[in-house]
């Protein structure tokens, strides 16, 4: 069985984020404190674009967040775009206009602007379409197909031989990668609640391990009695590339060695992500 303590998609690996160049640059910068200063930067005009975020799930209300991108140095409190209409087309061709009802989900702290009234049914292979219009004539469209289900065969943990506060466990999730398709996975381990920042997160692609058993793991980092949630998302390529480009774009700001990366949106006419989630999740209490 093959296993990845961290991602083969190195750019998203937590270890590879400790890039040696960045480490050394950091050391040099530390060594030469006082070498930073605020400067005035005149940026060219940047026309705002609609930004769409929507993650549909089977048996959940469809929710979409529509915001706007803004000039980078503008004030942080931007207003929501007005007069936006969102239409979701179901696999059977039914078109639902989602209601404009901006709110924050108190359970997840996630904001959304549009919501459906009925829960959707999504099966692997189902294709949904999204259309977003606004009164300025901007139009964003997207299409997404739910990835196949890849079942988790096993989730296990193992403690080291130490005692007291040093006693820690790692967690391994095992599954078999489908041989017929090019697959991408997102692995997350949360403590206590999935609404918090994950303790471990990385993405993996199967280009070096197609059709083989895989284990995605962590280091020895969890304590006895921790309640953890292990989630393995099966992603399609557009969603994987979007996540990667977001990561690259964020890393490029402040890293002189990084090449700035454009966002690879899954939507057309704007920026954003529209995808159908298919994931496996297990809750474990470490004993």
């Amino acid at each position: 069985m093959m296993s990845f303590p961290y991602s083969v998609g190195l750019s998203s690996s937590p270890l590879m984020r400790l890039r040696p160049a960045a480490l050394l640059t950091g050391s040099l910068l530390l060594a030469s404190c006082g070498l930073q200063k605020d400067i005035d930067v005149a940026l060219p005009n940047y026309p705002a674009q609609l930004v769409v975020e929507s993650y549909l799930e089977n048996n959940r209300l469809p929710r979409v967040s529509v915001t706007e991108s803004v000039p980078y140095l503008s004030a942080p409190d931007a207003e929501l775009p007005k007069g936006v209409k969102v239409i979701l087309t179901m696999p059977n061709g039914r078109r639902d206009t989602l209601a404009y009802a901006p709110a924050v989900n108190p359970n997840t702290n996630k904001g959304y602007t549009h919501t459906g009234r009925t829960r959707i049914t999504a099966r692997p292979g189902d294709t949904f379409r999204l259309e977003v219009y606004d009164t300025q004539g901007r139009r964003v469209t997207a299409s997404a197909t739910m990835p196949a289900t890849v079942p988790l065969d096993n989730v296990e943990y193992k403690f080291n031989d130490l005692s007291g506060a040093q006693r820690k466990a790692y967690v391994l999730a095992s599954f078999r990668d489908p041989a017929a398709t090019v697959d991408f996975y997102r692995y997350q381990v949360h403590k206590r609640s999935v609404a918090t920042d994950p303790e471990v997160e990385y993405t993996v692609e199967d280009r070096l391990s197609n059709g083989q058993p895989l284990s995605l793991g962590t280091s020895y980092q969890f304590s006895p009695n921790d309640t953890i949630f292990v989630t393995m998302y099966h992603l399609d390529r557009p969603y994987f590339q979007f996540l990667q480009s977001v990561d690259d774009a964020r890393n490029a700001n402040g890293n002189p060695f990084a090449q700035p990366s454009a966002i690879r949106s899954t939507v057309e006419g704007g920026i954003g992500i529209f995808t159908i989630l298919n994931y496996q999740r297990q809750r474990i209490i470490l004993k």
């Binding site: 975020e53 000039p71 977001v246 700001n253």
Partner: peptide, 13 residues
């Protein structure tokens, strides 16, 4: 970067 946008991800933590 000329612009920026807010990214919430699946959970808005």
């Amino acid at each position: 970067p000329l612009g920026r946008f807010v990214f919430q991800d699946i959970f808005g933590a």
